[in-house]
């Protein structure tokens, strides 16, 4: 077996994986590091990834675990500090992304993971609960709390959003 298969996987799936990583970490640099960690693990365990029923879901799971374990490891030793959230892209208004990242950053990491799994990756409550090791009730509670927090934050800081336009 050569490297082509893995290369194809990275080319086809990195975009979606990176976007999930960006929502989870809210930082381009941290997202790149997280994706790098997940892809390296996928590379090392490639036979298992290939043998999985859904290799893409497998690597998304690796990425999520890496995020959660990294947060646990950091939480006892690090204080959150402001960091640059984006690099301007010519011709693109970054204000929506900046506002979204700022709002997500205000959520607890686990609540953020619930939001990403439920509303970005479109997982069911049951699947989200399974992936995060939570009860379904806990997922629902965290989901509601996160949505209400985001609504308040995005209304205040994102006056042109569709939500605040209603």
């Amino acid at each position: 077996m050569d490297d082509t298969e893995f290369e194809r996987f990275v080319a086809a799936r990195s975009g979606q994986l990176y976007r999930s990583a960006l929502l989870l970490t809210t930082s381009p640099h941290a997202a790149e590091d997280l994706l790098q960690t997940a892809l390296t693990k996928a590379y090392v365990a490639w036979p298992r990834v290939r043998a999985a029923d859904d290799p893409v879901a497998y690597v998304h799971g690796v990425l999520l675990k890496a995020f959660l374990s990294d947060r646990r490891r950091r939480s006892s030793t690090e204080l959150a500090v402001a960091e640059p959230t984006d690099v301007p892209v010519p011709g693109v208004d970054p204000s929506e992304r900046l506002a979204l990242m700022a709002a997500l950053r205000d959520l607890a990491p686990l609540d953020r993971a619930v939001v990403v799994l439920r509303f970005w990756e479109d997982h069911s409550v049951a699947e989200t609960a399974r992936q995060l090791g939570l009860s379904e009730a806990a997922v629902k509670n965290r989901c509601l709390r996160a949505l209400r927090t985001l609504r308040g934050l995005l209304t205040d800081s994102f006056p042109t959003s569709p939500r605040s336009a209603r």
Binding site: Y18, T40, Y43, V44
Partner: peptide, 10 residues
């Protein structure tokens, strides 16, 4: 991403 994953993975 691919190149770093391959190098780190090996």
């Amino acid at each position: 991403m691919h190149d770093r994953a391959a190098v780190d993975g090996r």
